[in-house]
Computed example of a mutant assay.
Amino acid sequence: MTTRPYAKELHLAKLAVQRAALLTKKLLSAVDKGHFDKIDATPVTIADFAAQASIIAAIHAAFPTDQIIGEEDSTALRSNSALLERTYELATTTHLSDPTAEAHLHTPSSRDELLELIDLGAKPVSSNQGRIWTLDPVDGTATFINGQQYAVCLSLVEDGIQRVGVLGCPNLLLGSAVHEDAVDRDGYGQLLSAVRGQGTTIQPMGNGGLLDSESRHLPPITSITEGHQVRFVDTAAATSQRLDIHAKVAAQLDCPWPNSVDLWSAQMRYVAIAVGGGCNSFVKVPKSEAYRSKIWDHAGGMLLVQELGVKVTDLEGRDVDTGRGRTLAGCYGMVVAPEAVHTRVLEAVRVARGL
């Protein structure tokens, strides 16, 4: 029997993300989530630290020569013993209930190891070539704190090309438009995954082994062929992007505005497109010409929609380069739309920007 490319990486990534998702779900029931603001004013919780340690522990044990890019570092934990203790407890007491599945995943054995694992994701990469895992332990921390939508994100980039993407969405409820407050309160949410050239799958998450028997392939997005069929996902709370220009883009396309779906998490916007959650496109026109997105906000999620026939480019129509380190350094802004209408959306963006 022939093993499909990246089968081992995909299996381990799905297990690691599911365990980290369980970890975050456990913290959701806590009144005090260990929340504070980072220097850039974005919120962070002990779930971010514990999930990063948990995922890196699994990946580094299985693929010790691979590089890792993670969002967090351990500075705050090293200066706050109480925060470290809570993070260590959360990271080391959360396990998959299936011993066979859990056996694939390493767990930090000491507080020092936990700190070192977190910092593996913070080190500068020695080369942008080769295998690099990118992770965002909690994409959408602000909405996570409110019990709304967020994603646990892991991606493998090899020689600058996305190969594997896995997103765990613990609060995702299927069956209607994706909404911050439409939360899966009875289950564990959904796990989305993609391997380049192999399509995108979705399956429910559980607390044990992977529920592969309930996995299904998502259909390609082929029915959107006209500008007026575009349905945007955006966020009205954005502070880094030009929502006024986004509105002009919608007017150019004669499609609904305000945006059909409003989600804070960048990765959840890809998820909403992939699952047909009331939207099929998004644009991002930054306020600052110097603005560049972080790779962990997009890698993996991009692959999910690209495997479904959605094109992802910058504002000039250039493919997004995921081989530039911690940021999408060569990418100014984003245009994400089904292949058949991408050129039309790109032109609408150009006109809306006055170019």
Rank of each mutant, 00 (worst) to 15 (best):
A41D: 15
D32H: 13
A30E: 15
Y88N: 01
K33N: 10
A57V: 03
V44E: 10
T45D: 03
V31G: 14
S97M: 05
L84I: 06
A50M: 04
A61F: 12
T65A: 09
E72V: 05
Y88Q: 01
A61C: 09
A16M: 07
D37I: 04
L90F: 11
F63N: 05
V44D: 03
D112Q: 12
E89Q: 10
H60D: 14
T100L: 00
N80R: 01
V44M: 04
D32F: 13
I68S: 01
A53E: 14
I59C: 04
R19Q: 05
F63Q: 05
A53L: 09
T42S: 14
A53F: 12
L15M: 08
H35A: 12
K25N: 13
H60K: 11
L105Y: 03
A20F: 00
D112P: 14
A62R: 03
L114T: 05
H11E: 15
D37Q: 10
I68H: 02
Y88T: 01
P43I: 07
S97P: 11
E71Y: 13
I56S: 04
V44T: 12
A50W: 00
T93A: 02
D40P: 06
R19S: 02
L22F: 07
L10S: 08
D66I: 07
P108W: 04
A21I: 03
T75Q: 07
Y88G: 00
E102S: 10
K26V: 14
F49D: 08
A16C: 11
L77T: 07
R86M: 06
Q67I: 02
A62E: 14
L105H: 05
R86F: 09
T107P: 08
E85M: 06
T87K: 00
H106D: 15
A101G: 12
Q67N: 12
K25T: 15
L28N: 13
Q18F: 11
K14E: 15
N80S: 09
S81M: 02
I56H: 03
Q52W: 03
Y88V: 01
L114N: 00
H106R: 07
L105R: 01
S29N: 13
I39D: 15
L77W: 00
L105N: 12
A30W: 14
Q67T: 05
T93P: 11
K25D: 15
E89A: 07
H104M: 05
T24M: 06
L22I: 07
K38Q: 09
G34Q: 04
T87I: 06
D98Y: 09
A7W: 13
S79E: 15
L114S: 05
A50D: 08
L96E: 11
T107G: 04
P64L: 04
H35D: 15
L84Y: 09
E113D: 15
I69N: 03
T42K: 06
F63D: 07
T107A: 00
V31H: 15
T100P: 07
L12I: 10
A47M: 03
R86W: 08
E89H: 10
D40Q: 03
A76M: 10
Y88M: 00
S79D: 15
N80A: 04
A57M: 07
F36K: 05
D32S: 10
A51E: 01
A57T: 04
Y88R: 00
A76E: 14
L15T: 07
R86G: 10
S79C: 08
R78G: 07
S54P: 11
E9F: 13
E71N: 11
R19P: 04
H60Q: 12
D98S: 08
H95S: 05
K26G: 15
V17F: 08
N80P: 10
P43F: 12
